[in-house]
Design a protein around this nucleic acid. Sequence first.
DNA 1: TCGTGGAATTAACCCAAGTCAAAACCCATG
DNA 2: CATGGGTTTTGACTTGGGTTAATTCCACGA
Lengths: 175, 175
Amino acid sequence: MELGRFITENGTSLSREPGQHVFRQGDQNASLYFVRTGLLKAYYLSADGKENIKSFILPGDHIGSLMANHAGKSCSFSLVCLKQCELVALPFRTLYQSVRTDPDISGAIVDLLLSFAMKKEVREYELLCLSAEDRYRRLIESTPEILKLVTQNEIARYLGVTPVGLSRIKKRVMA
Amino acid sequence: MELGRFITENGTSLSREPGQHVFRQGDQNASLYFVRTGLLKAYYLSADGKENIKSFILPGDHIGSLMANHAGKSCSFSLVCLKQCELVALPFRTLYQSVRTDPDISGAIVDLLLSFAMKKEVREYELLCLSAEDRYRRLIESTPEILKLVTQNEIARYLGVTPVGLSRIKKRVMA
DNA sequence: TCGTGGAATTAACCCAAGTCAAAACCCATG
DNA sequence: CATGGGTTTTGACTTGGGTTAATTCCACGA
């Protein structure tokens, strides 16, 4: 069976309003979410209340807390809707079980995990090797759409600088 | 079949001296490597000659360039031995094909990818949310062994600071 | 025991970004 | 069209870490 169908057949749809959370840091949550429409952000909240944005999630993307799914731990980040969202939730268990029974699904899962791992690897590279300014430059090049969708405040928290910092970077870059 | 056996049966052993590369940034390389013994480092080299260390690889770990394996791109980083190493190389293709034929292997691969993805997620968190000093603290807590195995220079490049920077952090931390 | 070369530390100086606080801007709404 | 809330920009000041270069440490071989 092909993955798209598997998801619709085994998952449960849900919709969320802007501002609503799908799960929060510390929750137990054992599902993978597929985004049909909308926009979400995954973020960390530090002990002193600072927000750091892990990623933005767009239609066609999927997200879930690996930690919470796999190791029986709790979610290390929160997932919140920035716009009205239509999602499909799939218990991780369901997916995991069919790895051993359905070769098509297991192929699809491997691809899913591979593309996920590659994304993380790129992000790791950017955070390790590039300056905030370079990361900003790359963002404008690779996904300019995102700039329209979220506040500059959020872009900053995604790039790993403060809003004030990003404002200064912008000025520098355009000059 | 169980993964360990699968690897020994389908892979080819190789050994490398300290200083020898397994592959270099820019290479085409379509294998996954399993480390039997030794120590390696995966690193990025920037245009202006600066080194940034992606990770250290210890016995029992596995590594390969996802980019080069999957998307037909070339390796985004280099892999070099820090000590004499015994490795097993497994063509990615072999692994990928048996996902569809052998449920045990495909389960093992999914686990492999999951643990890989989780590691990357932790690293992403550290680079995004923690200061260099916090990262250093965490390193001493979580894997103090590594401090004995590599130079402080390399620890610094792994943490994302210069050797000079790390020296200052150390002084601050011990006080 | 004395060099010698690589690793680590220290010092002096600089710059990017953080912090805090005060404008300025930008709308939506009444 | 004025008001008020949120977002962005600016300014003044501080700080962590980069850079370069000098110095100290140490292990090791002659």
